[in-house]
């Protein structure tokens, strides 16, 4: 049940994002002052319009694109970087690896959102920088999980046997260890995905992150909050879309974990 719900919601969000140009009646950036703050159900604007008369449906749909884009980029970036570092750190076990894990500890001693926000405030706002900031703050989890997995996989008989047969280290790492660690990476990725998009929204809400007029849910929520008493829909729909996406991806992640790696705790 949960699995189907997760897959269903996630697929729906992906479909909406992909098909945004066809589903959206108008350009999400096109403003029409005369049509400002129309409530949902207004002619031609199923979800209403914002203060500049931009169509909310279009903005929410394009927002899905952006959220998934940010989530995907960040997850890939963190998985590759964090995963590789974790893999190497687990396999090498010399001082550079220890130093790396200490660095991971340093980073973990700081709240994720606050860290990403601090980095973002310093490197500058905008789409590219928020992805970089989230990645810089998020790679640690992979490094830790993967290193732990590698340490245990390494002791297993088939790896030991391969090593004894004289298989090269790189080959050993990528052919024998990596496939056994991959499920963990996938599970962590799916669980991190929603954390990233919610964090992005929270950071944008506080005035950093993706800036208007780009239709990102986070900045839309930040804009909509000022209109809470006059136009509830401006905060309601982006907020709902964000919650729904996070819900779908979380359920999917749970299901993946239950199937692929039930012992993993993140």
């Amino acid at each position: 049940m949960k699995a189907w719900l997760g897959i269903g919601i996630t697929l729906a969000v992906v479909a909406a994002a992909v098909a945004a140009p066809w589903l959206a009646p108008v350009d999400p950036l096109a403003s029409d002052f005369a049509q400002g703050l129309r409530p949902p159900g207004a002619l031609g604007h199923p979800l209403g319009t914002d203060q500049l008369g931009r169509d909310l449906l279009a903005r929410v749909l394009y927002g899905a694109r952006l959220a998934l884009f940010i989530g995907a980029c960040t997850v890939v970036l963190t998985a590759v970087v964090g995963g590789l570092l974790g893999l190497v750190a687990g396999f090498v076990e010399r001082w550079p690896a220890t130093a790396l894990m200490r660095l991971a500890d340093v980073q973990l001693s700081f709240p994720f959102i606050l860290l990403a926000m601090t980095i973002n405030a310093i490197v500058g706002l905008g789409l590219r920088n928020i992805i970089l900031s989230l990645s810089a703050a998020g790679w640690v989890v992979y490094a830790r999980v993967v290193r732990g997995e590698v340490l245990s996989v390494k002791e297993r008989d088939f790896v030991q046997a391969a090593a004894a047969l004289g298989v090269g280290r790189a080959r050993l790492l990528f052919r024998h260890v990596l496939p056994n660690v991959a499920p963990s990476i996938i599970v962590v990725a799916s669980l991190q995905f929603s954390q990233f998009i919610v964090a992005e929204a929270a950071i944008s809400f506080l005035g950093f992150g993706v800036q208007p007029p780009t239709p990102a849910w986070g900045s839309m929520l930040a804009e909509g909050r000022d209109f809470l008493y006059v136009a509830w829909w401006l905060a309601a729909f982006p907020g709902a879309a964000l919650a729904l996406t996070a819900l779908g991806v979380n359920l999917l992640g749970d299901w993946l974990r239950d199937t692929l790696d039930p012992k993993l705790r993140v």
């Binding site: 049940m1 949960k2 929204a201 929520l221 907020g239």
Partner: peptide
Amino acid sequence: DHAGTLATVIGQAVPGFWLGLMLIY
């Protein structure tokens, strides 16, 4: 179990800043 699980899954997905504004309202 199902109701509880649903509640926790939703609890994880709802952004805090949104919940805060709603509670104030």
